[in-house]
Amino acid sequence: MADQQSTEGITVTLNGGQTTISGHDTLPLLHVLREVLGLKGTRFGCGQGTCGACTVIVEGKAVTSCDLPLEAVRGKRIETVECLAAGGATHPLAEAVLACQAAQCGYCLPGILMAAKALLDREPDAPDARIREALDDNLCRCGAHLRILRAVRLAGEVMTAATDR
């Protein structure tokens, strides 16, 4: 369905590639990802920016995508959970989360992993308190928090080691 039309469309850098989306300027980024582009790894949780399930990274910063109109990210760099397994290479976070069995239902994980990636990209050696702070806007209902924290620390160690090399 077309919302307010923009003739030229909106171009973004999505997981490293350029994408132009036409006819959905005011649609929340979450719905553009899920419905228009078919990238369904990012989850719908509340539609109000309060649970973090739809968290993506825009210009290095973790943001909720359910309350962010597409036009607000024109020309920006966007990363979604799909970037963790892009091109056959698996990101340390993806490996760590499985190694630690860091989920129960898994629904909140894509958003949490994006919040974690935004932190680790800046501070791969972030201590526990910083990780907790960075994930504090993301809700997990099953109670997998401690495993998630372990996984993020583990991924951070792997990323730190890779940077030091």
């Binding site: 790894g41 959970v81 993806a94 499985l98 069995q101 629904y107 994980l109 894509p110």
Partner: peptide, 11 residues
């Protein structure tokens, strides 16, 4: 089921 729940679209 975990890999698909986190990285897939099973829901």
């Amino acid at each position: 089921d975990l890999p698909n729940r986190i990285f897939g679209t099973p829901f």
